[in-house]
Design a protein around this nucleic acid. Structure first.
Lengths: 357, 357
DNA sequence: CTGAAAGCGCTAACAA
DNA sequence: TTGTTAGCGCTTTCAG
């Protein structure tokens, strides 16, 4: 092939040898300068930097990765939806990853993806990432029949307990949805509702199950009746469908929806059926999407601290990557933030009087 | 260093030489098998595959990139918001990139990012991508004072005309917002409104300017009065603020908002001010976000074909990457899709000053 | 403080 | 159909 190591011809991108020659030093010294290693005289550093600048030199990352065995990149696996929650999380992750000096690679697992999580992990491992973030994994159709996933880099799972996998470090972040669901439910109970209905998310999602659990345990611990759960698919359309059914039942005076989109569809169905929100029925959402404060009526909801979760989790992941032998950093729980607006109120008088069974 | 090329010791990841030895062939043959090159006998292929399987072999991407000069990855630069439009676009891009066999690297440029677009491009170039997608770039504070960006890979710009940059190929996709804005405006005019007000997006965004332009030219070409523009920041909150002002003006009977979030805030403000939508004022949004059909009243809006745009644009970008010398593929315009729901109606009979019905 | 030499694991010609 | 020989551009090790 003989392209001539360190040609001074101009066509291809310049390399360390070119810079070294121009600066009158060895290639190793160029490497030292760019890695900010100690023991380089100010004078030499200046010459190297100047030569690099002049040539438009830029370190070749593939070569760096090959020689060092590290790619300085982190892969994230998301569900590939533009839903507010997952999208916010991804943006948060990107920011932190970049701030930490890593590059970000993204792979989606669409629901129904044949390869699923294992395929996504594999593709990231092929690319050679130093760590993996799995954002809101969901249960898979043929779930884990292939045994635990073997991963040789640290993994951070956000919004769910870790799936079965063997890895040098498995961390998780973003728990606490059950506590948030509890706050929502208690808010409604505190308003005087006899019980609270729940419009759940798809139960394949851990996030959906977690919220349901928080709701259920709250009712149980208060000795309230636990009404049957209605399950939606996160969409406003499914919330609307659920709302049409719920509207028929006069016992329904309070509903906790597992996300804001469904809550909005629900409110619409109730309103169309002549059930006033919050006069007849109170509704609480989840996420605090940007329009939540501006729909009619403004939605009471639970705000999720996406950025904080991403930041907290990534910090621990990077620590695990860079200190393979150290103990993992401890996790910290995100705060609960119930935003009370106008979609919740005490139950209507007629119903208040009756005692819950 | 002498780690022993092709050691049979088990610790590190196996390489091509290990596989070759086990299969009793040369390393090059292993390479041939994995690249699906022709001229490998079925028997040899089988042996190699078996050996690889047994060893858990996985090609080293860094080495491949170094040797071939291609990373098989595409970088995308987004604004780092969870706004429905940008997020949907990103998901669409991810899917197509993956389907095409490339890996995806993501870098955000937050508004106000000091490094800005140039910094993002630079970071991607450092990582060594084969192509770059710039999604919805916005004007930058100190815009382009550093001269045209020098990029040595093909670039696809979505939702805006290409910024000044020198690159082997500069493509653009996702135009046509002006046509969509025109459709929205004409729908309102067709309903009988004398003119249409516009609640614009931040004018630093090309997407916002494009929609404004489509609206303005429609009015002008119809000989209608062009009312002053109100500018929001895409948020429902800004739509609400604009709505409070607009509600004071009895001349306002129709408003075209540059996105659905602002439209929702706008509707809320109008309603609170006693101006009924669509009885007194008609409102059209833009994007068709998932909740648009379920807010009160269901929003008439323009649906954006994010997936189609991503698919169409990426196809051309990949073509440009893989056929550096061929002519670029021609662009095709996305379809215009106005979704008429219940937030638009003919203007009220008496346009001067009364409210309600 | 600086440099020389030896790879990292793969692909690219060129033989055989 | 298969193998040989060079690198790709950097980091690592070990000497000065």
């Amino acid at each position: 092939m003989k392209r001539g190591t360190g040609r001074s011809g101009s066509s291809a991108a310049p390399n360390g040898v070119d810079v070294a020659r121009l600066a009158g030093v060895s290639q190793k010294t160029v490497s030292r300068v760019f890695n900010e290693e100690p023991y380089v005289s100010a004078e030499v550093r200046r010459r190297v930097l100047e030569a690099a600048e002049q040539l438009g030199y830029r370190r070749n990352n593939a070569a760096r990765a090959l020689a060092s065995g590290r790619t300085r990149s982190i892969g994230v696996i998301t569900l590939g939806t533009a839903l507010y929650g997952p999208a916010s999380l991804l943006m948060g992750v990107e920011r932190v990853v970049r701030d930490t000096g890593y590059a970000l690679r993204v792979v989606n697992t669409m629901e129904g993806d044949p390869a699923g999580l294992a395929g996504a992990v594999d593709s990231l491992l092929d690319q050679g990432v130093d760590g993996i973030v799995i954002s809101e994994p969901i249960d898979e159709p043929g779930g884990g029949e292939a045994g635990p996933l073997r991963v040789d880099v640290p993994v951070l799972v956000i919004g769910a307990p870790p799936p079965p996998l063997s890895s040098p470090a498995v961390l998780s972040a973003g728990g606490g949805a059950d506590l948030m669901a509890r706050a929502a439910t208690e808010h409604l109970l505190g308003l005087g509702h006899v019980t609270v209905h729940h419009l759940a998310g798809p139960q394949r999602w851990f996030a959906a199950r977690d919220r349901l659990e928080g709701w259920r345990t709250t009712l149980v611990s208060r000795g309230r009746n636990v009404p049957p759960v209605v399950e939606g698919d996160w969409s406003a359309a499914s919330g609307y469908a659920a709302g049409r059914a719920l509207a028929q039942d006069p016992e329904v005076t309070a509903v906790f929806a597992a996300n804001d989109d469904m809550a909005i569809g629900l409110v619409r169905a109730l309103t169309e059926a002549g059930r006033h929100v919050p006069g007849d029925v109170s509704v609480v959402g989840f996420d605090d999407i940007p329009v939540a404060a501006y729909v009619t009526p403004p939605l009471t909801t639970v705000r999720q601290p996406f950025d904080a979760v991403a930041h907290e989790g990534l910090k621990r992941l990077v620590h695990a990557i860079e200190n393979p032998d150290a103990d993992p950093l401890p996790a910290s729980a995100p705060p609960v933030d119930l935003v009370v607006r106008a979609s919740t109120a005490p139950p209507p008088p007629a119903v208040t009087g009756r005692s819950g069974r």
